[in-house]
Amino acid sequence: MKQVKKQTAVVTGGAQGIGRAVVERLAAMDIRMAIWDIDIDLARATAAATGADAVACEVDIADWDSVEAAAEATLEQFETIEILVNSAGVAGSNNPLADYPIDEFRKITEVNLLGTFHVNRAVVPTMMKQNYGRIVNIASVAGKEGNPNASAYSASKAGVIALTKSLGKELADQNIAVNCVTPAAARTRIFSQMKQEHIDYMLSKIPRGRFLEVSEAAAMIAWLCSEENSFTTGASFDLSGGRATY
């Protein structure tokens, strides 16, 4: 995939999981990396492993001031931001809605949905000024179909899909593509937040009979971030192994 000039990518949650796989894939395309993650030690280790053109920023995407400061620091370092991949998120515990802890529901929504808004809000003005940008928000197949005992996660990811579609339409007259991916579960550290019965349930719903590999997610996301993706915007791309029905 061609890149006309040296570009800068922001990857939230880039220290591990799908985010790290995206960091490695984009770095191999000679793209400068700003890794935004709440785990700064792990983010620094990932940046060091990625190469000289990678920096780490400690960011809590649920906190607007934290996100705004990271955007300013990234622009000071690299001057431009052409790519945003918002991979940071939390799964939360598994409980029926009637028993779901109210504070935890709020926290999951603040990270997954409000956090997505914060990150997009911080980066979009720069992309508008340069009339170029590629944004990929990581949603989930749970946002399309809803997983039982995961109402907070499912609802927050459904919101990410809708936010992506809305923003894609807002920016459709500019050279800014805004898309999301809806992956089935990948075996990452987020599994530690789930009950084994919920993990088994998710696996049972995947026709391919296995979990998503993070490298498979990174391959699709890398194309969505490229200049070759010059037409598609406001869309949802499945990585569900055949689970998604629409």
Rank of each mutant, 00 (worst) to 15 (best):
E104M: 07
E104W: 11
F105R: 05
K107D: 02
K107P: 00
I108S: 02
I108G: 02
I108M: 02
T109M: 12
T109V: 12
E110K: 11
V111A: 02
N112T: 05
L114E: 15
L114N: 14
L114F: 09
L114W: 10
G115V: 01
G115Y: 01
G115P: 01
T116F: 10
T116Q: 07
H118W: 03
H118V: 04
H118M: 04
V119M: 09
V119E: 03
N120R: 00
N120E: 15
R121A: 15
A122P: 03
V124Y: 08
V124S: 13
T126H: 14
T126I: 01
N131Y: 14
N131L: 09
Y132D: 11
Y132T: 12
G133P: 00
G133E: 12
R134K: 12
I135W: 07
I135E: 04
V136G: 04
N137C: 07
N137Q: 03
I138P: 02
I138N: 14
A139S: 13
A139G: 06
V141K: 03
V141F: 04
V141Y: 06
A142L: 12
G143Y: 04
G143C: 09
K144M: 04
K144R: 14
E145D: 09
G146L: 05
G146E: 13
N149P: 06
A150H: 01
A150N: 08
S151Q: 08
S151G: 15
Y153F: 13
Y153V: 10
Y153S: 12
S154G: 02
A155W: 06
S156G: 07
S156Y: 03
S156H: 11
S156W: 01
K157V: 10
G159W: 11
G159N: 15
G159P: 10
V160M: 08
I161R: 09
A162F: 06
A162L: 15
L163A: 10
L163K: 10
T164S: 01
T164V: 07
T164K: 03
K165T: 07
K165G: 12
K165Y: 07
S166Q: 08
K169C: 03
K169N: 08
K169V: 13
E170S: 07
E170G: 02
E170N: 05
E170Q: 03
L171I: 00
L171P: 14
A172E: 09
A172G: 07
A172L: 11
A172Q: 06
D173W: 12
D173C: 05
Q174E: 13
Q174S: 13
N175M: 11
I176K: 07
V178C: 00
V178T: 05
N179W: 06
N179H: 08
N179L: 09
N179A: 09
N179D: 06
N179Y: 02
V181G: 00
